[in-house]
Amino acid sequence: MKMTSIKMKKILDERLAGPAYKTSYNRDKDTYRIAWKESNQGMTITLPNVVAKYNERGEKAVDELVEHVTEALRVMNEEQELTGMEKNIYPVIRATSFATKTKAGEKLVCKDHTAETRIYYALDLGKSYRLIDEAMLEKEGWTHDRIDEIAAFNIRSLNNDYKKDTVAGNDFYFVAKQDGYDASRILNEAFMEEMKVNSKGELAVAVPHQDVLIFADIQNKTGYDVLAQMTMKFFAEGRIPITSLPFIYENKELEPIFILAKNRPTE
């Protein structure tokens, strides 16, 4: 029997039923919304996307969706505190086009990184995380410098294992731990310097999306082309894309590079 949006709505009504929630269906947009009755905080689900996943993966797709929605609603309804949770605070890299305010209008804590990227701060809650806003800082009496120092310390404590691949005489290293902070490791200066010291040629680095950090030890001109194609591919496939532009890492600075086919990059 073919799954439809209406049938999926009925499944979600059953699976997400609860006295504290309210649900609604927008027939025009084919979306399903579930929110807390008291605060009206919630999330909107695009039903055709869920139907497509169901047709491909069956009940498992619904199980994962329900788990994700339940966890997100739980986090929305909790008062998070920073004090006592210092070990769970990490920096996250986002594109400069990423929102600087929450949907509720609260200003997110962030700082400039490069022309392409910005640093935000996340409170890790296990299965999910929450970006830290100014109201949370004020409540705790914390400064921007303090949260930045804590986040920087925690990113240095993470494991930096990588996989290596050699293409056309150039070495590529991929950090993909899938812990939500792969791209954030670009902020670990000691790790960056270690990779620089061990590179034979010019060291380039890329953060195409949240769940990968790519180092490229460029030893010939072809290396730039390979890196450009690789970064673009990862950027297009990423769940949270960041930037398709790689950077040259030199003197502890990141310079975006615009790679022209068969040529050395122009900065």
Rank of each mutant, 00 (worst) to 15 (best):
Q41H: 10
R130M: 08
K101C: 06
T31N: 10
T117E: 15
M232P: 00
K111W: 00
F247W: 05
T44W: 03
P265K: 04
K196A: 13
P256I: 04
E14C: 03
V62Q: 06
F258W: 06
I186R: 01
N160C: 11
K53H: 12
E189H: 11
Q80V: 14
A35V: 05
I214H: 02
E67Y: 09
P246C: 05
E56I: 07
K164Q: 12
F174R: 05
G180L: 06
T231R: 08
T243H: 06
I132F: 02
A176I: 07
V50C: 07
F235I: 06
S244K: 11
I11W: 10
E267A: 04
K163D: 13
D148S: 11
R74L: 04
M195L: 12
R156H: 11
H144K: 15
Y181H: 08
N55H: 15
T83N: 09
M3K: 09
T102A: 07
I214V: 14
L73H: 00
T114D: 07
G180F: 06
D124E: 13
T44N: 08
A61I: 08
N55D: 15
Y120E: 09
T102F: 05
L254T: 05
A35N: 01
A115L: 06
G180Q: 06
L227Q: 04
T31A: 07
E134Q: 14
D30R: 09
E81Q: 13
N26C: 11
Y32S: 04
A261K: 13
K252T: 13
M43A: 01
G58T: 13
M43W: 00
V167P: 00
L137I: 11
E59P: 10
K177C: 02
M1G: 15
T83A: 14
M76I: 00
L108K: 03
T70G: 06
G223S: 13
A204V: 06
Y224H: 12
R15T: 02
R146W: 14
I218V: 15
I11K: 11
K22N: 11
K233V: 11
V207I: 15
R74V: 01
Q41G: 00
A99W: 03
A104V: 02
L82T: 11
D13F: 04
A236P: 00
N88M: 09
P208R: 05
V50S: 03
G169N: 12
K221Q: 14
Q41A: 08
K127I: 00
I119F: 03
E56T: 14
